[in-house]
Design a protein around this nucleic acid. Structure first.
Lengths: 147, 147
DNA sequence: CTAGATGCTTAATCCAATCAAGCATCTATC
DNA sequence: GATAGATGCTTGATTGGATTAAGCATCTAG
């Protein structure tokens, strides 16, 4: 299990609650991924493939190097979860798509990752709206490392 | 940069807001760690060392294998950020402590990791209380992978 | 036609995580 | 006491993620 990313000594209740929530979210995600033989990175990449997309584009969206994507996609391809199609117009480029296997597996993963669903279900409609507003307001003005 | 752990296609506003928040939090943490030459795991471990603590205890708290801690601590020790003291009563055991260097560096890291502080500062006292209550309520009943 | 940009891959390196073994030490029991 | 098993930690091996530098093929602007 990955190590939790957050301070242990939060100075306020709010910081503590944020950390606890983030930690629970991350752990739930990792657990769900492992249940389906996926790493966190693999699950995340698989989840992005709702449409054909190039390697470069994928790397930009995920904020990491293209060579990183290369190896993640290779591992997914070996398991027949994705396929790399030639780009119709640009022979340098590949279009990545999920295979039916990949789509099925990802659906199963999402079913396992019930964290956000459960968390949402614990709140009334009004509370959900409140939470959304508060989270967005809290985010406002925080530094965004990569766009 | 690590890949974001979360679904891209969130089915509700609330899920989307949760993911955005978690993603921003994780990225801010990683960025702050990198600014001080620390990995996420290293920053996290360093943050736990507010008291003397054994390797076993550390591994349990972080929910990972003891051998994982061994190597993380070794890298921190090489940089004189932590020290491994013999346990007074049990010669198998080590007590890990931060060196003054480690304490200084971690303080600087925490200063850089302003995400939770800024996010909190964006909210009034009343809103903070609301957020804490909502986050805790949302967490209630979600599966807890490791206690 | 060519210089440079672009899309991707490969190889090398570092770190994190996990597993299986192993050593030293401790503890409970005989 | 002796010893069997538990405990604390380390080591080595393996897997995977992330980054960097280098390289190839292709595209595009001039």
């Amino acid at each position: 299990m990955a190590v939790p990313s957050g301070p242990v000594t939060a100075s306020t209740d709010a910081e503590r609650a944020m950390f606890d929530f983030v930690d629970a979210y991350d752990r739930a995600y990792e657990t769900a991924a492992l249940e389906h033989g996926l790493s966190v990175a693999q699950a995340c990449v698989l989840g992005r493939l709702t449409r054909q997309i190039g390697m470069r584009e994928l790397a930009d969206e995920l904020g990491c190097d293209a060579s990183n994507i290369t190896q993640i996609i290779r591992r997914l391809e070996v398991r027949d979860l994705v396929r790399r199609l030639p780009h119709p117009d640009d022979r340098r480029s590949r279009q990545i798509v999920r295979t039916p296997n990949g789509t099925t597996l990802y659906a199963a993963f999402e079913e396992s990752f019930e964290f956000a669903r459960s968390a949402t279900a614990n709140l009334s409609a009004g509370e959900q709206d409140q939470l959304v507003a508060l989270l967005r307001k809290a985010l406002n003005g925080t530094r965004k490392p990569n766009g």
